[in-house]
Structures are given as structure tokens and as C-alpha cells.
Simulated assay, not measured.
Amino acid sequence: MTKPATRIVELEDNELEEFVEIYAERKSKDYVEVERVGAANDKGRDVIGFLSRARHEGEWDLYQCKRKTRARSSGSARL
């Protein structure tokens, strides 16, 4: 049986965003709404968990779905 972490790595981008959306919906009963944005020009907002009906005017949590590629390590830069 494949480990869960291995299966997550194998997800396509849209599947990863869907997974995170489901996770956010189930993780917190504090959210009044969970919205998956994840599109071009989403300003890094893939999934948002709103803590009040005020949506962006109130408090909210941001989930950004990124993957580290094997070709480039995260956090390193070449000048």
C-alpha cells in the first residue's frame, strides 16, 4: 500500500487544491465558508477559510498550494 504522503505528491495541481479545500472544510468548524480560488491571477490565494460572514473584511485563513520541484530547491537563489 502506498503511503499517504506519496499519494499527495502524485496529485495534479487542481487535485491538490481540491484536497486542500476538503481538508480546510473538515479541519475547522470555525469557518463560515471555504472557497477555492486557485486560478490564474488568484494572487496566491488557492483556498480561503473565512472566519466570519464579513469574508475578506474580517479574519480569514489562506492556503497556498505549492510544490517543491526536484530541479530547484525552495529557498535557494543564484545571483
Rank of each mutant, 00 (worst) to 15 (best):
A24R: 01
C65E: 00
I8E: 07
S74V: 12
R53T: 15
A77Y: 10
Y31R: 05
A40K: 12
G58Y: 04
G75I: 00
I22H: 05
K66E: 10
D42S: 14
L11C: 09
R72C: 03
T6M: 04
R53E: 15
R72P: 00
E18D: 15
S52G: 07
H56M: 11
A77I: 13
K66C: 05
E57Q: 10
E25F: 04
Y63H: 13
L51N: 08
H56C: 04
T6F: 02
R53I: 15
K27E: 08
A40S: 12
K68E: 14
Y23Q: 09
D61G: 01
N14A: 13
Y63S: 00
V34I: 08
R70S: 12
E35S: 11
V37T: 05
R55E: 11
E57T: 07
I22M: 08
F19Y: 08
S28N: 11
G49H: 02
G49D: 02
K68M: 13
R72F: 07
Q64V: 04
K3A: 15
V9L: 14
K66D: 10
L51D: 06
V34P: 01
L62R: 15
D61R: 09
R70V: 14
A77E: 11
K43H: 13
Y23G: 06
G49K: 02
D13H: 10
Y31V: 03
S28Q: 03
F50V: 07
E25Y: 05
A54H: 08
E17C: 06
E35Y: 09
S73V: 06
V20D: 00
F19D: 00
A40Q: 10
E57P: 00
R72W: 04
D46P: 07
R36P: 01
W60L: 08
L51T: 03
R70N: 10
R70D: 12
G44Y: 01
E12F: 06
S52M: 04
V47L: 06
D42W: 02
V20E: 02
K27V: 02
E10M: 08
V9R: 15
F19Q: 02
F50L: 05
A24C: 07
E59Y: 10
V47A: 07
G38M: 00
E18L: 11
K68Q: 14
P4D: 09
K43Q: 12
D13N: 12
